[in-house]
């Protein structure tokens, strides 16, 4: 078999393969960028266009910088407060799910204990029940104990949704760090906590950031619990999303932008921790 290949296939110049590879590489880059950027571009163009242009066809593809739709949202009562609530709940969710999920992930990867496999399965169970089913009992309980309509109450619910991801992502990240590194730190005088803090933590930071971003977006996008459990302290999604689906097209685009942009800004702000995962650290 290998002989046949050798005779049929003349060796090609290295530069040929290089250029084909280069082409593939750049085609891939362009495709991936378009995948992310084209929807955002369309969202931006339609947000900045007048209602007539949004429904008109053919599209010019160039925004007319009509601020009508944006102004509508800026003057829409309660948007800023809802935005603030959304950020608050999402950040709380992020902190809580990392604070609870990362130690669980560490324990799963470093310690042997009975029921470990079952635990890994059970962690996923929080996602097995649809929220509309759980929302009523949760709302009743929250009203009774006074957590109703508070950011922390909603953050607790979102944390339960985010925890499976936090645990499983951090579990695999911690498993990727050789135990020997920690042992080396111990032999050099660190205790368990110090070794974790000085050796393991810097290495897993990108992974933790990734799961933090996950928690953030889960909370940011969640609608049902948010609209049942908050009344006066609404989050942006609860406040806008359900109204948007039955609103005119140009407002849907503007509202979509209002929902997407804060999340994009957040992801940009933490991107260097993400990129550190692929070795382009801290640029």
């Amino acid at each position: 078999m290998s002989g046949a290949v050798a005779t049929a296939d003349k060796p090609r110049a290295v530069s040929d393969i290089g250029s084909a590879g280069k082409f593939l590489f750049w085609a891939g880059v362009v495709l991936l960028c378009a995948w992310v950027l084209v929807p955002i571009y369309l969202l931006a163009v339609n947000t900045l266009s007048s209602p007539q242009q949004v429904t008109a066809f053919p599209k010019t593809g160039v925004p007319s910088f009509d601020m009508g739709s944006i102004q509508f949202f800026l003057s829409f009562e309660g948007v800023l407060k809802a935005l603030w609530n959304s950020v608050l709940v999402a950040v709380l969710t992020m902190i809580l799910s990392i604070a609870i999920g990362a130690p669980a992930g560490y324990a799963l990867s470093r310690f042997e204990f009975p029921g470990k496999a079952t635990f890994r399965m059970l962690v996923l169970m929080t996602r097995a029940f649809p929220l509309p089913l759980l929302a009523l009992p949760i709302a009743v309980m929250f009203i009774r104990i006074g957590l109703d309509d508070t950011p922390i109450g909603l953050a607790l619910v979102h944390t339960t949704l985010a925890i499976p991801f936090a645990v499983l992502i951090t579990f695999s990240i911690f498993s990727g760090i050789p135990l020997e590194l920690e042992e080396a730190a111990w032999t050099l005088g660190c205790n368990r906590l110090q070794a974790f803090h000085k050796v393991v933590l810097p290495l897993v930071l990108p992974g933790i950031t990734a799961s933090a971003i996950f928690a953030f977006t889960i909370s940011w996008n969640e609608v049902f619990a948010a609209s049942v459990l908050t009344v006066q302290n609404r989050t942006l999604t609860a406040f806008l999303l359900q109204s948007l689906s039955v609103s005119p097209l140009h407002l849907r685009f503007a509202g979509g932008a209002a929902l997407v942009i804060p999340a994009l800004i957040f992801i940009f702000a933490v991107r260097k921790y993400m990129f550190a995962m692929w070795g382009i650290a801290n640029r």
């Binding site: 509508f72 829409f76 009562e77 608050l88 709940v89 950040v91 709380l92 902190i95 309509d149 508070t150 950011p151 922390i152 953050a155 009344v231 006066q232 302290n233 806008l240 359900q242 109204s243 948007l244 039955v246 609103s247 005119p248 407002l251 509202g255």
Partner: peptide, 30 residues
């Protein structure tokens, strides 16, 4: 700071809350 705000934020709202499943589209709401 976020935790502190989350724990202390409370609402004192004297407005009447009008809970509706009509006038949902944003322009009508406005």
């Amino acid at each position: 700071a976020a935790l502190a705000i989350g724990l202390t934020a409370s609402t004192a709202n004297a407005q009447v809350l009008f809970w509706s499943n009509q006038a949902v589209p944003v322009e009508e709401t406005q």
